[in-house]
Simulated assay, not measured.
Amino acid sequence: MLDGVLVRAAKHARLIPEPLLRGLFLAAADAAWLLRVGGERQLESNLAHVLGGSGARPVPRRVLRRTARAGMRSYFAYFAEAMTVGARSDDQLRARIRGDGEGLAPLVALTRGGAGSAPIAMGHQGNWDYAGFWAQFDVAPVTTVAERLSDERLLRTFVDIRERLGMRILLTGGPGLTDRLAEALGRPHVLVPLLADRDLSRRGVFVRAFGSVIRVAAGPAVLALETGSPLYVVTMRRERLRGARRRRAGTPYGYVCEVRGPIDVAPYLAMGRDEAVRALSQAWVDLWAPGIAAHPEDWHMLQPIFLDDLDADRLRDVPDDVAATAGRVRGDADAVEGTADKEDRTAEGGKGRADDHDGA
């Protein structure tokens, strides 16, 4: 049902007032949060890892619920924006996003000042469609990947949106995808950003994050190693717009594209292939995780990602050290959860409520 709504909204974007659609999606987000459906429970579980860090401190229930509500609203707001992007002017879109971070200047110097190209590791955060649009003007044009969906109409809708925004889209499942991406990086002035914070397939790479273990996509590390290109990391967050920029954007909120890096691949080239991919993946995750921790409400991860939330016995190729870590973390998490529940009951007497989130 939701897929059909998204397709129809995209086709008739110019006929739908953006504030109306946004309001409807935020109401749906609040309903999903209140009823704890549509991935909300899993989002809470993921956020507990982020907010709890290494697990040394319990996460108060009220904090977790408040952040989860903000996360659901951010996630649904993204869909409202994505479905109406076809009705926005270039000037509106450019006013809605800006770049920042210590990695931005070297990335611009590489791709605009020189003739270089770069792979980028990203997570499911913020509005990556806006990021791809912004990049072509301030950094370099984007070639990226879209996952094949079972709903062909929805897939075509998302691909059309991103191609209209100036991106070149390659679909997963085709032959030689990595080679095609490496070929793109061999040309001047190209960015290859990949959503890489979750990959449960046999090709996924185990890394440590937030006191636990996650399995990320190997793509960013593989491309950097194969091409010798420096690897960058991007996280995104929402920000309130003001003054002339808000009037140009036609909306009260926009996004900041935080660029981190570069990570020089030279130290990894002497390693064995698997060791290098794992070490380089850990390096980009170490840059990525602080951006998620700083703005967890904008992380749209509604699927299981942490190894201790998964059935490790059903996962293949789990290294012994990773499996042992997952077992220890699962035991610690159970203890922390029990402590947190006890603290909530004691401190709040069952009277806590989630506060409104200003970011959506």
Rank of each mutant, 00 (worst) to 15 (best):
G55H: 01
W33H: 12
G53D: 03
N46H: 02
W33S: 01
L47N: 07
E44W: 00
R22V: 14
P17S: 04
A48E: 14
P19H: 14
A31W: 09
F25D: 01
R41N: 02
A32I: 02
G23P: 14
S54E: 15
S54L: 13
Q42L: 00
G23R: 12
A10K: 11
G55W: 10
A10S: 11
D30V: 00
P19K: 12
A28Q: 00
H49S: 06
L21A: 11
L35H: 06
I16R: 14
L51K: 12
L26T: 05
L47F: 00
V50H: 01
I16W: 00
V50Q: 09
P19V: 09
E44N: 11
V50W: 00
A27D: 02
H12G: 04
L35A: 07
R14N: 08
A9G: 09
A27P: 08
N46E: 12
L35R: 11
L15W: 00
A48Y: 06
R36H: 13
E18T: 15
G53Q: 11
K11A: 10
R22D: 10
A29Y: 01
L43W: 03
A13G: 10
H49V: 03
R57W: 13
K11Y: 12
E44P: 02
R36Y: 02
Q42K: 01
Q42R: 12
G38D: 06
S54W: 09
L43K: 03
W33A: 03
L24D: 09
Q42H: 14
A13Q: 01
F25A: 05
L34D: 05
G23I: 11
L24M: 05
G23F: 10
G53Y: 12
L20D: 00
V37R: 08
V50F: 09
A56E: 15
H49T: 09
L26A: 08
E40H: 11
L26P: 05
A28W: 00
S54R: 08
R57Y: 15
L34W: 10
A28P: 04
R22N: 12
N46M: 11
L20Q: 11
N46C: 07
L24S: 02
R57I: 13
R41Q: 13
A10D: 09
R22P: 13
D30M: 05
H12N: 03
R36Q: 15
P17R: 02
L21H: 04
L43P: 06
A29C: 06
D30C: 04
A9L: 09
L26H: 03
L26Q: 04
E44K: 12
L21V: 13
G55Q: 00
A13K: 13
L35T: 00
A27G: 10
R57V: 03
R22L: 15
G53P: 02
A56D: 07
L24Q: 02
L24T: 02
V37S: 07
A10F: 07
R22Y: 14
R14V: 04
H12P: 04
F25H: 08
A48N: 08
R14E: 03
A27K: 08
V50S: 07
Q42T: 10
L15Y: 05
F25E: 02
G38V: 06
E18G: 15
L26Y: 04
A10G: 07
